[in-house]
Each structure stands twice: as structure tokens, then as C-alpha cells.
Design a protein around this nucleic acid. Sequence first.
DNA 1: CGGAGTGTTGACTGGACTCAATCGCGGTGG
DNA 2: CCACCGCGATTGAGTCCAGTCAACACTCCG
Lengths: 266, 266
Amino acid sequence: MSLQASVLIRQFSQYCTLSFADKEILLSLEQHPIRVSAAQAICLEGDEPEQFFTIREGWAFSFRTLDDGSRQILKIYLPGDIIGMRDFSFSQRLAGVAMITDGVICAFNHPQLLSVFHRSGNLAVGFIAIASRQQAMLTERMIYLAQRPAQQRLAHFLYEMYLRLKRIGAVQEGQFLLPLSQEQIGEALGLSAVHVNRTFKAFRESGIVLRERHHVSIPNLKDLANLAEFDGGYLNNEVPSGFFVPQWEEDIRKESLDHTTNLGGP
Amino acid sequence: MSLQASVLIRQFSQYCTLSFADKEILLSLEQHPIRVSAAQAICLEGDEPEQFFTIREGWAFSFRTLDDGSRQILKIYLPGDIIGMRDFSFSQRLAGVAMITDGVICAFNHPQLLSVFHRSGNLAVGFIAIASRQQAMLTERMIYLAQRPAQQRLAHFLYEMYLRLKRIGAVQEGQFLLPLSQEQIGEALGLSAVHVNRTFKAFRESGIVLRERHHVSIPNLKDLANLAEFDGGYLNNEVPSGFFVPQWEEDIRKESLDHTTNLGGP
DNA sequence: CGGAGTGTTGACTGGACTCAATCGCGGTGG
DNA sequence: CCACCGCGATTGAGTCCAGTCAACACTCCG
């Protein structure tokens, strides 16, 4: 695999400059691409969280099934995202994951991820940065679910998707593909499919958002952002100064670990 | 400070056995107890996340203020919890934190925490375990906010508080103190204060929960759990097998780092 | 061509919000 | 000591957003 194709390296590079060793470690996590098809289940609730995945192509979502059979969609995964981190420290998965579209994913396993934490402090904090950004998105969604009417929920959802898709180059002139059914959007936003439909209708009539099947067009971004009262702070990629260890320190740490490997062992 | 008084050691011990060195590192994070009073602000939205806190006594909560002046409470912190981790990898705080009652907190700073990640792989995964359990609680709350009516939201909230308080020994015979106003409970559950009151009234009339000022009594736990459709999986303290590195490996790693310190330096 | 899934619309219902009035308690100052 | 004030809790009346149920249209496929 080329360095370009590595989803993880692209992700981590948003936060810091990686050493060559770090890159090699990340590459080792993406050795097993798998082709998956739309609606295919990737993980189930209750499974052991043995595996994690990166998405190279396609969309996915994580969800919880409730007692009454309804479903809550927790997160939409796009190409470049890491799937399953949520359950990393649990002995059982708390959420299932399924594909939305056809796609390609790469699997790596729990011991591999664990060893990354022990081998590279920088990658450990990198994973933490990624995980806490996922949590921030979740928090933001929660606030809208708790307090906002349907129009603002949907506006916020669409604007967030717009920004995430733009970041990976999947937006052209305010237009993008949104391969979710209204039912699924409802499950993500805590709305009934019927009401999602009505809300889209209102957007169409006021010219805020035009939607045709899976094709979404946003004539005026500012209008949508205003309606959503969108505050993008939580999508910021900045990390605190000093968050990553300077390169030379990390190099020294590596050498010492190699040293250990040579000496140590039972 | 005695080992007993260390909030962090108590927390981490729920997940793994700590080495002596690990305990010393954790103790170093709790050197500065501060007395704080009810309603006092601990952090503000937009601040740099320089400091983190452990709560030794008292209750606190984190929140976001919305454009229209309303507030969403994100999490209730109890004695033993760690405050501020949410913002660890961000350059600005996304949420404020304020005390609910008088209390005592210990501050440690960003570089200290960062160095912990680099000095002990076990403590790094321990912090991750704690952070992901906070995230799991958040997710669970979100699901209830999105899909459940007021009675189930409140029932779930009370049952979760019950379990968390029981874990720290603050429950006696199904009774505990809940020092939140109905207004604050509403801000946590996405309900108006008026409706929180009506819901408590319904609980009182059906005998599910009795509440007098800040004193809450739950006559029959099963009834409350059933009403809440409570699934406690997300409060489980189990971690996957192999999650923490066996003691001897970690010891060797430490020695090698000491070695580095002796040899290294710019 | 028919069936399944998705989208669209209307009519009705209901849970939760708002506004508003009242009550009870604790603190504070005359 | 008591009147006053402020905050939280309580209750009622009216409104509205969003859910449910139901019918129908459209599109994609087999």
C-alpha cells in the first residue's frame, strides 16, 4: 500500500508530523482491505471488540437498538474515519456498526492497537485526539437533540455533514451526495421519518436546502449556518501547544525501547 | 497525602492493579487541594484547557451555554471523578464546569497529564478507559434524550445517579441526596423545570420515587429500573483481557526509560 | 408487471412548552 | 420579632411541535 492510501496517516497528519517509525506502525494497521456491501453489518452489539476498522471507501454508521425495536444512529462514518474506537476499552461492544453504501474497509485487531499505545506516545495521544473529536461531535449532536426543534437539528446535521465531506473533497459547489434514507436521518436526529420529510419540504420551500433523492444542494451556506446556529469549534483540528512530543525526544524513546527488546524478554 | 485519599488511585484500581511507580505518578497529580464553594465556576467555555481536576468532595457539572441563553448540562461529576478530560486534546474548552455544592478539588496541569501518557503505557490506557466510560454515559444519555419521554428520561437519570452514588458509598437503604434543583435536572434532561416537577409528581403518586427537597428515596429499585428500561452495560468496569500490560513488562519498560534519562538529554 | 422500499401528504392526537399565579422556605434588615 | 424579598417548587390553562396512523405516489428491480 502506498503512503497516500493510508487513511490513518492522513488522519494523524491533520494533528501532527509523524516520524517515519510512526508511519510504519500505522501502515501495519491497514494490511487487510475488505470489500463490503451496502447494509452489511460490520459489528454487532454485544460482540467482543476484537477488531477495529478504517474506512477507505463508502459510508457506515453506528447504532444502538432499543427495547421497543427502534434504533438510534450514533455516528456517521465517512472515508478516512476509524470504526469501533468507542468500544476499545470495553469487554463488550455497546453499539453495532453497519455499512450504508458499498465500500472498502481495513481491519486491525485489539492487541495491535494496544501495542501502538505502548510503542509510541505520539500515536497514543493522536488516537486520543481522534477519539475526543468523535466525542465532541457526539456531544454537539446531543445538545441539539435535547434542546432544538426539528429544523435546527436537520440544519445542523446537514451543515456538519457538509463540512466533513468538504474536508475529504466530496463537495462540489455546495452540492454533495447523502446516501441516507429519510428514515435513517430520522434515526440519527431523534425524529420520525415523516417529520424529516416535512422538514425537508419546509427547507425546499424556503430555499435553504434542496434535496433530490440522495443529492443535496445548499444554495447559500450562510443561511444554513445561521439557521443551525452552527458553532464549528468542535470540528477544529488544533491541538494544544506541546501536545505532541518533539521529534528528537520520541526518537530517543524508541531507541531505548529497541534496547529493551534486545535485552529483555522472559 | 495518604494513598487512601487519592481519588485517581481509587479510580484506576477499578480497572487494573497499579505498580508502585504508577501510584507515585498518580499521587503527583493530586498535590494541590483547593476548597471551592457552591455555584463557583471551575472552568469557562473558550478557556485554554490548561488544568484538570479531581473531585475529592462535592458535586460539579459541565455545561454548554447556547445562543438563546439556555444551558445544556453534559455531565454530573461526583467525588472521585476527573474534570476536564473532555477538552484534553482541544486548544479551547468546549464546555464550562461549575460546582453544585461546596467541595474540595485537586488541580493538575496539561504538561503533567501529557507526561503521564509518555511515562506509563498502563496509565495511558487507564485514562482512555475512564474517558471512554464517560463517553459511554454521554451516549446513553443522548439515546434517552433523542427517543424517550420525560418519565423514562428522569427514571434513567435517577437510576444512573443511584448506581454511581452507590459505588462511592453515598446511598443508604435506597435513599440519597441529590443536590440539584429541578431547573438543573431539566437542563440535564432537555426538559423544562415545570415538566420535571410534573414528572416527579407522577412518580410520587405512583410510588416510584419520593423526593423531598434534595432528598430522594426509591422504594423499589426494580420498578425504577423497569420503567427506565435500564441496561447497565455501559457502567461496567470490565476491560478486555490483555488490556493492561503484565507487570513485569511494564517494569522493564520503566527501567529502559530511566536508562534513557541517564544517557540521553540534548 | 408486480412488489418492496422510499418518499409525500393529510388528519388527528398527545406530550411537553410557555405563561402565569401561588406557595413555602430561608435569609436579611429594619 | 416580624415584614420583606428572592428563589425554588407547585399547579393550572392554553398552545404548539412532532408523533402516529393512513393513504397514495414514485422508483427501482426482479
